Simulated assay, not measured.
Amino acid sequence: MIESKRQKLDEEERKITVIAHPNIALIKYWGKASEAEMIPLNDSISLAVNYFHAKTTLIARKVEKGEEIGDTVSINGKDVGLNSRFHRVFKSVRDKLDCQWSFTVSSSTNFPVAAGLASSAAGFAAIAFALGKTFDLPEHDIVRLARYGSGSASRSVLSGLVQWKKGNDKTESHVVSHFSADHWPELRLVIIVVKDEEKALSSKEGMERTAKTSELLQDRIRRNQERINLIISAFSSHDFPSLAELIMRDSNEMHAVCLDSYPPIQYLNATSWSIINFVHSFNKESVRAAYTFDAGPNACIFTLKEHVNELYDRVTSTFSKGKEVKDVYISELGQGPQIDN
């Protein structure tokens, strides 16, 4: 259990600031068995990105009987509307408490929002963790709150190689960490931001379309558990070539079922495909890098410490900043949420 520390301003108001990291799925989930309970169609497994983070401050204020609750959320200084995901998270907490509380959330990120870099995972993991520590909730409730906000956020609550097991209902759907983040300290990420604008079709809308129309999706789901087990085995033994091939094949397959949706969904652009070809060329003599793309054109490339500087130099010399790509970052693996003192 992660240590808890919160600031009580008085008995009527509590404040806490949390830093959480996005996670990059090595085996991705795409599609939900239940939208209401955020139950995925398949398991997924991920690692957190240390360089990127969401810093989130939560103020919980006790509300008198008959007083309007008035929750608010701002991200990077901009007030955002309280969509169903925020309502679901806040209501779930209030249902557990003896009295009513209102929540003010202010979050800032050092990476693009809604651009396919798992910003919602970091954001909702931070909110869930902050709520959990403010009201002394057990870890499984924190995970559930994160999942209600964004399915992948549940994986950002824990550290290391984290698997989200889909289960058959809300009580069975849970996350487990197979290895700590320092099990393979040599792993690195090179993150290529191709576009930092919000994507035209959200992940939620894309998943719904794929689940309804893709004929290839069930084939992907049938292979899911085998690939999860192979990822765990490769990570356990530090077998980078095997890990890399699994990561790239799964990314390719997810985007294949997106294209198989009707109408087809295209999250990758021409630069994304150039990055794919670049990585395969980089791997010509030996497998030293593995690309993966979430629902967007931005690339996350896994590699090892011994290759990361060469990979970064090759990327930045091949793809010009400000023209083909917005920026390029190097990151180590991240941890679970932390209280910011």
Rank of each mutant, 00 (worst) to 15 (best):
A234E: 00
D196K: 13
L117Y: 02
L26I: 15
D71L: 10
S236I: 00
I39C: 07
F282K: 01
F278A: 08
S92A: 15
A33P: 00
D71C: 07
W101P: 08
Y51V: 12
V279A: 04
V105T: 07
D260I: 11
F111A: 08
L97G: 07
V63N: 01
G77L: 08
S233R: 13
Q338D: 09
M254T: 12
H140D: 10
G123Q: 08
E12Y: 13
D260L: 07
N42Y: 03
V73S: 01
D95N: 14
S233Q: 14
E332H: 11
I16A: 09
R223T: 12
A33M: 12
A126E: 02
L189D: 15
D294F: 09
R14P: 00
S320Q: 14
S281V: 10
S173N: 03
M207T: 06
P22Y: 09
P264M: 04
V193C: 13
S108A: 13
K5Q: 11
L137E: 09
V308D: 03
I339K: 05
V287S: 04
V89D: 00
A118R: 03
S107W: 03
F293G: 09
E172C: 02
T318F: 01
V89Q: 02
E68Q: 10
L268F: 03
T134V: 10
I228T: 02
V63G: 03
P264W: 03
P112Y: 06
R94Y: 03
V194M: 02
F52T: 08
A36W: 00
K15Q: 11
L26A: 07
E226L: 13
T104G: 05
K165R: 13
N269C: 07
R14S: 12
G70H: 08
F179A: 02
G160L: 04
K96T: 14
A20F: 10
Q335D: 14
V80N: 01
S150A: 15
R188Y: 02
K305Y: 06
D98K: 15
P185I: 11
T213L: 06
E67N: 12
L161Q: 06
W184S: 11
N224W: 02
D196H: 10
D95M: 11
S237M: 09
V257Y: 08
V287H: 01
K15G: 01
G31W: 05
H21C: 11
L131M: 14
K91Q: 12
F278G: 05
L137M: 15
E3R: 12
S274I: 00
L189E: 11
V308E: 14
S251E: 07
T318A: 09
V113R: 07
A130F: 06
K284S: 14
D169Y: 04
Q7D: 10
L189S: 11
I69G: 02
Y51G: 00
A290S: 06
H280S: 08
I39M: 02
K195I: 01
I2W: 04
V157A: 02
L117D: 05
T318N: 05
S74P: 01
D141R: 04
S108I: 15
F103H: 03
A234P: 00
G160N: 04
E306D: 10
I59F: 01
S317R: 10
S102G: 13
Q225M: 13
R220G: 05
I192G: 06
L259R: 15
G123P: 05
T104W: 03
N283Y: 06
L145N: 08
